[in-house]
Design a protein around this nucleic acid. Structure first.
Length: 354
RNA sequence: UGGGAUGUCGCCAAGUUGGUUAAGGCACAGGACUUUGACUCCUGCAUUCGUGGGUUCAAAUCCCGCCAUCCCAG
C-alpha cells in the first residue's frame, strides 16, 4: 500500500482531499503546517489559515477519517522563504505573490522532503489542478472546475515533485467537494472559503512589513505622468501597479498607480489607459512541459491569479529568462507577480515578472 | 479704497426663465469577488446649498444687508 502525507489546512478542500486519498486506497497521514504565530500577524484572534482553530478542525477531520495526524512546525522556514521574501520584494518595488512562494518552498519543498523522510510516496493537497503523465513527463493541467483552477500558483513544481504529488480535487467541482464534506459530517463543511494573505489576516500588509522590519517607510510624492506633483504618498510599499483605491487623493478623475520609482521614492499616477502595455520580461523560470524551451514559441500567458491567460509570443532570453510579447496590450503588468504560460489547459511553465 | 467675480458634502462640480425626495466624479466606509497585491462590482455618504433678513402657496435658484475668497485698478 502506497503511503501519502496529506497536507490539511483545516479547510474543506484539504479535508475532502484527505478523504479521497483514503478512499483511493492510500495509507494516509494528515499534517498541518504551523507557519507563523498569530502575534506576528498582529492578531489576537485566530482566524487565518493554519491557526489553532484550523488545527482543531483538521484534527477533527483526521480523527473522523481514522488517520494519524500531526502538526509540523515550519515557522522558521516560512519566515525565511515566504515572509522575508515578501518583504524584500516590496522593498524593491515589486508586488510579490506569497502563496506561490509558500507552495514552492513550503508545501512542495519542505513538506515534500519531510514526507520522503518519513517514507511517504506522495504528498497530497487540496489544490484544484491535475497532474497527468504524458510520455516520460508529468504535466500540470488546469482543474476540471475552471472557476477554482489553481494551476497558476503551482507552476514551480519540478518533475520530481509532480511525480510524487496528488491533487485529488482536480476532477471535482467545488460544489461536489462541499457536498462530500457535508455527507461525511466534516466540521468545516460550511466553512468560509478564502482569506487574504494568511499571515496578514486583516489585509494591512504594510503594517505587517513594518512590524517585521521595525522600519517605517518614508513618505514621498505622487507625481503625474507629466511629472507634476499631485500629493504625498504614505510609503512606497503601500502601493502596487494598477491600484486605484487608497491613494487618499481627491482628483477630478480616478487615477491609478502606473509606476513606482524606488530611487526617488516617487509613485507615478496616470489614467487607466496609461496602464496598458504588451511586453515584459520573466525570470526565475520553471519549465514543466519541457526541459528547455525552444528559442521562440506561442502560448497563452497569465500575469496574475484570476485573470484569463492571453495569447503571446515567448522568446528565450538567456538561461533562465524569457521576453514576452502579448498580441494585445494588457493592463498593469506588475513586477513580482508570476507569469504562467499555458498551452490549452496545460501549464508549460512560469516565472517571475521583472 | 474703488471696479469685477465667486461662495452647493473632505475635494472637484451639475443645478440659477423659482416648484416633489439637491446630478455626477474623486476620496472615504461597509460588503461581494478571491488561497497574493491589485482591478472590478454592490451599498452607504449634504433635510441642505457662506450668513442674516425679505418676496412667494413654494427659493440653492428672485431682492436687500453682512461675511469670506479671488482678480483688476491704485
Amino acid at each position: 500500500m502506497k503511503r501519502a502525507l496529506v497536507a490539511m489546512s483545516g479547510g474543506v478542500d484539504s479535508s475532502v482531499s484527505a478523504f479521497l486519498m483514503k478512499e483511493a486506497g492510500f495509507d494516509c497521514t494528515g499534517v498541518t503546517m504551523r507557519l507563523f504565530d498569530n502575534e506576528d500577524a498582529g492578531m489576537e484572534r485566530e482566524k487565518s489559515c493554519c491557526s489553532l482553530d484550523d488545527v482543531e478542525d483538521a484534527r477533527a477531520v483526521a480523527n473522523r477519517l481514522g488517520i494519524p495526524y500531526f502538526v509540523f512546525n515550519f515557522k522558521a522556514d516560512f519566515k525565511r522563504c515566504v515572509i522575508d521574501r515578501f518583504i524584500e520584494a516590496y522593498e524593491c518595488g515589486a508586488t510579490p505573490n506569497p502563496c506561490i512562494d509558500c507552495n514552492r518552498f513550503l508545501k512542495f519543498e519542505r513538506l515534500y522532503r519531510r514526507a520522503r523522510e518519513i517514507e511517504c510516496d506522495y504528498i497530497a493537497t487540496g489544490h484544484y489542478a491535475r497532474i497527468e503523465k504524458s510520455g516520460g513527463r508529468f504535466l500540470l493541467k488546469k482543474a476540471k472546475d475552471l472557476t477554482k483552477d489553481q494551476s497558476y500558483v503551482l507552476y514551480s513544481l519540478t518533475q520530481e515533485q509532480l511525480a510524487h504529488t496528488k491533487f485529488p480535487l482536480g476532477e471535482f467541482e467545488k460544489s461536489e467537494v462541499r457536498k462530500i464534506a457535508e455527507e461525511h459530517g466534516f466540521v468545516n463543511a460550511k466553512k468560509h472559503d478564502s482569506q487574504d494573505i494568511c499571515f496578514v489576516p486583516d489585509g494591512d500588509y504594510a503594517k505587517i512589513i513594518e512590524l517585521h522590519t521595525g522600519k517605517s517607510y518614508p513618505h514621498g510624492n505622487f507625481v503625474g505622468i507629466d511629472g507634476k506633483i499631485l500629493g504625498e504618498h504614505k510609503g512606497i510599499i503601500r502601493y502596487t501597479i494598477g491600484q486605484r483605491k487608497g491613494l487618499g487623493l481627491a482628483l477630478p478623475e480616478p487615477l491609478y498607480v502606473c509606476e513606482k520609482r524606488i530611487d526617488t521614492n516617487e509613485v507615478v499616477l496616470g489614467r487607466n489607459e496609461d496602464l496598458f502595455s504588451r511586453e515584459f520580461n520573466v525570470t526565475d523560470i520553471n519549465w514543466i512541459a519541457f526541459d528547455a524551451p525552444p528559442e521562440k514559441f506561442r502560448a497563452s500567458a497569465k500575469i496574475r491569479y484570476r485573470q484569463k491567460e492571453q495569447p503571446a509570443e515567448i522568446i528565450k532570453d538567456g538561461e533562465n529568462k524569457v521576453h514576452v510579447v502579448f498580441d494585445e496590450p494588457q493592463r498593469a503588468i506588475t513586477s513580482g507577480q508570476a507569469a504562467v504560460f499555458y498551452d490549452g489547459d496545460t501549464v508549460v511553465g512560469g516565472g517571475t515578472i521583472i
